[in-house]
């Protein structure tokens, strides 16, 4: 078993109205040091795979086919063997 953690954010080129709103809210709460906010999504996926390489192939395929929309989103992932 492998546990994948996927983080999805809007591409840098895409305007993020949620992120901007959160940034403004932080500013109004006095967090003037907050300079930039991007809001994203987070997935935890348990994958039944024989080795790290095949788990990696599967999580990439899942992201590309369903978890993200490549027109507006990008992702990073972290994969660990479950103990």
């Amino acid at each position: 078993m492998y546990n994948a953690v996927v983080n999805v954010t809007l591409k840098k080129s895409v305007l993020d109205p949620q992120g901007q709103t959160v940034l403004h809210a932080l500013e109004s709460l006095g967090f003037k040091d907050a300079k930039k906010v991007r809001v994203g999504k987070y997935f935890e996926v348990a994958i039944d795979a024989k080795d790290h390489k095949s788990a990696e192939d599967r999580i990439k395929a899942m992201c590309d086919q369903l978890l993200i929309n490549p027109v507006i989103e990008e992702y990073t992932y972290d994969l660990k063997e479950a103990r």
Binding site: L15, P17, Q18, V71, I72
Partner: peptide
């Protein structure tokens, strides 16, 4: 239609959220 690729582009949340 956008997600299926039958039309180009994508949707974001309304600017008003």
């Amino acid at each position: 239609l956008l997600e299926a690729g039958l039309l180009p582009g994508a949707m974001l949340r309304n600017k008003t959220l």
